[in-house]
Design a protein around this nucleic acid. Structure first.
Lengths: 212, 212
DNA sequence: ATTTTACGAGACGATCGGTTTAATGTTGTC
DNA sequence: GACAACATTAAACCGATCGTCTCGTAAAAT
């Protein structure tokens, strides 16, 4: 032991650590998100994504190990993106807790309208497709929902402390219900190309909080 | 006018009118339903369906004009199958109206459990996939949802007349909400391979009816 | 018997899927 | 500047896809 461990000083070009690994790769992920939220995983070919950013096919496997790895990356990325969005709303101190949820709803409706209700939720899309997806996706998708649920549950607890919802309400369960219904509403909104389903579900949810 | 319309008596082998038109064709539709509720439309190849029933490829295009036509046929078929199921429950005179809805929920949960939560709802599946589907599917899917909604709304009206839910409740809207949330719950049930999401959503829905 | 139609069977072709390969470009160190 | 290591990509691979095509057989009319 104790071989000369003192920096073997490898020859040749060193791998780039950061930054530009966030260039082409970044573009691919961004384009992938756009297409997958619209068409799903199995229905989308890798070439469509490549084509959008003008990257040749051979390059894909330089940046990602496989389509599956690309998908997993996308899930994590989208999960974080969405979690930040939630935090932005749920952590807004200038609104009452329930108003924060309302502001998220309005924001999400806006987001869907911006793309004419063609793009949905990546996690919901892949969840539905799960029967045709690599099994490795399942846990990631579940975790993502659990993460979102936890963030919403925290917001609902605040609402409870503020007296906006009944003190005996099960905020944990309510958070679960919200995401179940919300994903259903996103699905319908995509189908009908309308914000109506989102409105209807959110309306029902808030009304139930008030009454229950 | 009034040409001799009296059965031109076509020559050749007549098409099998019934029964056996419910043979190969029927088998293909049945198998198609199984696969599509599990994997969706785009992820499923026609050969997998053929393979399941041991029918050679050439036969497919004898019975169906295209994969798209097959899908449309399947939608109609599933819509009717499900409508009959709804009628069976919602028309059950031995139960109070709301109990009828509960019995449907129990039945549907059973159905999903029977296949270990691998198969979902065809209409929901295709709705989510809409971004990658022939546009002809959209109207059929919407119509199917509207049909189910109407049937549920009728049941809810009966519940209202029976005093099970508030007299000022908007039964039409409630029916819409139910299917939005239910489809979301089916999605999650498939993802988690568990009946929990179905229970949770149904529980919330009924609680809201009681309170609201 | 012969025609006409229904149905079964599978090869075929064109295309497109994800993936691999080997070659080319690039940027460091020696 | 030479060369080693890394970055990038062109081109090919191979299997699967949907849909077509032809051909063979079955069955009922003429």
């Amino acid at each position: 032991m104790d071989v000369k461990q003192h920096t073997p000083r490898r020859r040749g070009r060193p791998p780039r650590q950061r930054e530009n690994l966030t260039e082409t790769r970044e573009l691919l992920l961004r384009a992938g998100l756009e297409v997958l939220t619209e068409k799903g995983f199995s229905a989308t070919g890798i070439e469509e994504i490549l084509g959008r950013v003008g990257v040749p096919k051979g390059s894909f496997y330089h940046y990602f190990g496989s389509k599956e790895a690309f998908g997993l990356d996308l899930i994590e990325r989208y999960g974080l993106f969405f979690a930040r969005k939630l935090d932005r709303h749920f952590g807004n101190p200038s609104l009452a807790p329930l108003e924060r949820l309302r502001s998220f709803v309005a924001d999400a409706m806006d987001g869907m309208a911006r793309y004419e209700f063609r793009r949905g939720c990546l996690i919901g899309n892949l969840g539905q497709e799960m029967g045709a997806l690599p099994e490795s996706f399942r846990d990631r998708l579940k975790e993502t929902f659990e993460d979102w649920q936890a963030r919403l549950a925290a917001c609902l607890r605040e609402a409870q402390q503020a007296g906006e919802i009944a003190p005996d309400a099960d905020t944990e369960q309510l958070a679960v219900v919200f995401w179940i219904g919300w994903e259903g509403a996103v699905l319908r909104a995509k189908l009908e190309r309308s914000a109506k389903p989102l409105e209807v579900f959110a309306g029902f949810f808030f009304a139930s909080l008030a009454a229950g």
